[in-house]
């Protein structure tokens, strides 16, 4: 048998590293040679985490080559799309339908519109043998602990791998936090049973509706001396001096409420207050 390749991808906090340890252990217990490699630089801050696992009778490199993963298990839709190039042409895609907007996607604070890709499984389906979009987070929550979503995903992954349940269960028992062994094993089995869901049937689990915080910039012109400090410190160019060197608020909507102008106003003349929150739709457009 040639080496099998699995890519696990998610964001910090989802248990990708743990899941990859479980898979590696299960493969070891099935008498395969295992190599594993992971990247989790900004994991604690919601950053991307990816782990490559290769196993087989002999494995040379720990890194799954492009277009050769037998299974891509994504704990998050955008991460699934990001790592798609690693999936073999007829590989299997397992995705938790939970959407987590990465911090980098929040930059447009004016509209709070989030550039998040639509869950268009049909588009990707022609590239892969199987697409399994599961509500892992929902299943885990219904079992009593949303944190076991990673075990649900691994249960679904196990359907495409030649590792027996005993090995999986022993691996889970070894790595999950003490006291949660049974729950994780139950989650694993639930993942084995989980059916694919339609994207629109999945509630927004990871992405609360975003309330746009708007800010009001009030300049008390009877106190302001038009010294010109605040326009130079405003990171969003909300304030400017006009042609007569008078302070004007040019773009209140751009204010992010950092209050630097307040803190650096020598004349106590600027007040930043939170305006009426405007609800902006939280997920994909």
């Amino acid at each position: 048998m040639s080496a099998r390749g699995v890519v696990l991808a998610g964001v910090g906090g989802q248990g990708v590293v743990l899941a990859s340890a479980v898979l590696a252990e299960a493969a070891l217990r099935s008498d395969f040679e295992v190599k594993q490699s992971e990247v989790h630089g900004m994991a604690q801050r919601g950053g991307a985490v990816v782990s490559h696992i290769r196993y087989g009778e002999t494995v040379a490199s720990p890194v799954v080559p492009l277009a050769s993963a037998d299974v891509l298990a994504a704990f998050e839709w955008a991460e699934a799309l990001r790592w798609m190039p690693y999936l073999a042409p007829r590989g299997a895609l397992v995705v938790d339908a939970r959407r987590i907007v990465p911090p980098g996607a929040c930059k447009d604070h004016r509209t709070w519109g989030v550039p998040y890709p639509a869950m268009d499984t049909a588009t990707v389906a022609h590239r892969v043998a199987d697409v399994l979009l599961i509500d892992a987070s929902g299943i885990a929550a219904s079992l009593g602990n949303p944190k076991t979503a990673n075990s649900v995903v691994m249960g679904a992954v196990s359907r495409f791998l030649d590792i027996d349940d005993v090995a999986w269960e022993k691996a889970i028992t070894r790595f999950v936090p003490p006291g949660t062994e049974e729950l994780n094993i139950a989650a694993f089995h639930a993942g084995q049973e989980a059916g694919s869901v339609r994207p629109e049937a999945i509630p927004d689990l990871g992405l609360d509706p975003i309330q746009q915080r708007s800010y009001r910039i009030e300049v008390d012109h009877s106190w302001c001396k038009d010294c010109g400090i605040c326009p130079t410190v405003c990171p969003e160019f909300c304030l400017a001096m006009d042609h007569a060197h008078r302070l004007v608020v040019v773009d209140e909507a751009a204010c992010i409420g950092c209050r630097l102008c307040e803190a650096l106003c020598p004349d106590f003349a600027i007040r930043i207050s939170v305006g009426d929150p405007a609800v902006v739709s939280g997920g994909a457009p």
């Binding site: 106190w223 307040e262 020598p266």
Partner: peptide, 26 residues
């Protein structure tokens, strides 16, 4: 916030006498 800080000012005496751009107010 400015609103809180202003609670500690004698508002009736403002604006203060310092020049534009004098950082003493900061």
């Amino acid at each position: 916030t400015t609103a809180q800080v202003r609670e500690h000012l004698r508002g009736w005496a403002m604006p203060h006498v310092l020049c534009p751009g004098c950082a003493h107010g900061i």
